[in-house]
Simulated scan of single mutants.
Amino acid sequence: MSPQPVAQCTLSLSLPRVARGALLFSAIALLAACASSPQRRQPTYKTSHSALADLPPRAPSAASAGEANDILFRAIGLVGTPYRWGGNTPAGGFDCSGLIDYIYRTAAGIRLPRTSHDMAAMDARKVRKMTQLASGDLVFFDIGGAISHVGVYVGKGRFVHAPNSGGTVRLDDIDGPYWGDHFAYGRRVLD
């Protein structure tokens, strides 16, 4: 009879030791992970300084300055929203033209065409130079020989857009290495 109780006793003593050992190992592993260098998340905006940042802010016109301000606040508020091809709501995500239409429709009551190509063809003043852009202007990019991307200029060399699948709505420098090379022109919808 004595071997059986001893075996049970040894087993019952070893389980708490195993559990304590596993718990101790988990705690050490967690602390080691916290002490290691953190994983860098991709920023929602570029950290470089735009050459346009020192230009004075421009509003499209005195009459539309309030609408431009509403558009800027709405655009900035959507930074971080997930990208989704064909998306046009904050809950469902945005593609580039869906984002711009949503911003203008909800902030200024202006309904825009559905695609970046159709937005670029609108009857609105064309702004050819980045230095002449005003807050609230639509900005268009020629990628692959045709207008295929749109954002909204917020001023100081920055624009808000929904750039790609797997990403989020973000704020970027319009004159950065990629976007500066593909900038086609702006459209002033608010005049």
Rank of each mutant, 00 (worst) to 15 (best):
I100L: 07
T81H: 05
R114Y: 11
T106M: 07
L23I: 08
G109L: 08
L99Q: 06
T89W: 02
P16D: 04
Q39W: 07
T81F: 04
R20F: 03
L99N: 06
P16V: 04
T47R: 13
Q39L: 13
E67S: 15
A35P: 02
R17P: 00
L112Y: 08
C9W: 00
T47C: 06
P16Y: 02
H49M: 12
L52T: 03
G80V: 12
A53H: 10
R114C: 10
I100E: 02
C34H: 08
C34V: 11
L52P: 01
C96A: 05
A22I: 04
L23M: 09
C96M: 03
L30G: 08
S61G: 13
L15V: 05
R58S: 06
F73E: 13
A22P: 00
S37P: 02
P16L: 08
S64P: 03
F25P: 01
T81Y: 03
I71D: 07
L15D: 00
Y104N: 13
G86M: 03
L99S: 04
L13T: 00
D95C: 09
G98M: 01
P82W: 07
G98I: 00
Y45L: 09
R40F: 15
A27C: 04
A51N: 11
A51D: 06
P16F: 02
I100N: 03
A108R: 03
T106L: 05
H49D: 13
T47E: 14
L23Y: 04
C96Q: 02
R17M: 04
P113C: 08
T106K: 10
A68L: 08
P16K: 04
D95K: 10
A33S: 07
G21K: 09
F73M: 14
L24C: 05
T81Q: 06
R58P: 05
D101N: 13
T81V: 15
V79W: 06
G66E: 06
T44W: 10
L24N: 01
F73R: 15
G87I: 04
G109Q: 06
L52H: 07
L99W: 04
F25H: 06
A108I: 01
L78R: 14
R40G: 12
T89G: 07
R111A: 15
P38C: 01
P56W: 08
